[in-house]
Computed example of a mutant assay.
Amino acid sequence: MRLPLALTATATAVALALTGCSSAPEPQASSGQSSDLVEVRGDLGDTPRVDFPTPLAPGETQCTELIEGSGDHLVEGQEALVGLAVYNGATGEEIQVTGFGSEDPVPVVVGGGTLPGLSKGLSCAREGSRVAVVVPPSDAFGDQGQASIGIGPDDSIVVIFDVQQVFLPKANGSPRITRDGFPAVVTAPDGRPGITVPDNPPFDTTEVEVLKQGSGQTIEDGDRVVVHYTGVLWDDNEVFDSSWESGAPASFVVSEGSGSQVIPGFAKALIGQQVGSQVGVVVTPEDGYGDTEQAGIPAGSTLFFVIDILGVV
């Protein structure tokens, strides 16, 4: 994958340009007559018992927070783990109920490939929220409907989200100054990094620098972490992979042993770090892909990653 490297002016100038206070985004939907008619019984995280009159036919997506959560509302690109119950809003028929009770919660991301109405509904949610969302066809499957799950062209959908865990949208730690000769990194307001690799030869060993120091949970060997990352080749500063480009964070098990789902250098960069941190890591071939070409990465390449640590599953 390729990602344009923006913000390659001096780190000082860009950092000054990007500083300043910003208010939390407002939800993209609000409560209304349809969403207020949805009744849900049961505790957060338990399989809900859902009732509503039919048909529900809102003119726009509506959301009502039935159980009040805490913290900020979810924002574009942010990931959460949820229990999810979906119904046909015209007939009341159940479509899917998953992620409750002993079942693993479902990862969802605001925006990206999510239906517009579901993204709007998720923007009303916070960690610990139960939210009822009623979505008209225009924000769901359009005039075609979705016959495979029993949704007609004029049918709304009703969705219950129990938001069990929320991950950071980007690293939120305190900036740190890095050593001379280390790649320069600046970040846009949405968290996307711009990277400039210096002209000097790469380091002889894998080297990690904390770019922003977080204060959350410490990553331990064997943890499954949620991260945003961008990787570039040291030789030409070309991006070879980026979760930012896909519009959703990535989740990996990081370990010093055989259970790791990432290259050794990536795991070394994360184990022992805290959630909320942003780290930069120079990965030598020995801790990367060695003498084997990998998905367009030349054999023997030194790599550089910028990693935002968003949470631990």
Results as ranks from 00 to 15, higher is better:
A140W: 04
P137T: 11
L115F: 15
D104K: 13
A132F: 14
P116D: 14
G117F: 08
V134Y: 01
E127Q: 13
A140M: 06
L122D: 05
G113K: 11
V108F: 06
A125P: 09
P136E: 08
V135M: 12
V109I: 15
G142M: 09
F141Q: 13
G142R: 05
D104A: 13
V109P: 08
G113Q: 13
L122R: 04
P116G: 09
Q144F: 09
P107T: 11
T98L: 02
T114A: 15
R126M: 06
V134A: 13
S129I: 05
S129V: 06
S119W: 06
V131M: 10
G121S: 09
G111M: 05
A125E: 09
A132D: 07
S123W: 01
S102E: 13
A125Y: 12
S129T: 06
A125F: 09
L122E: 05
D139L: 04
R126T: 03
G111H: 10
R130Q: 07
D139P: 06
E127A: 13
G142K: 10
S129G: 12
S129Y: 13
V110G: 08
G99W: 03
S102R: 11
E103K: 01
L118P: 02
V110T: 10
K120D: 05
V131R: 07
L115A: 15
A132T: 03
G111N: 07
S102L: 11
E127D: 12
G113I: 05
L115W: 08
D143K: 03
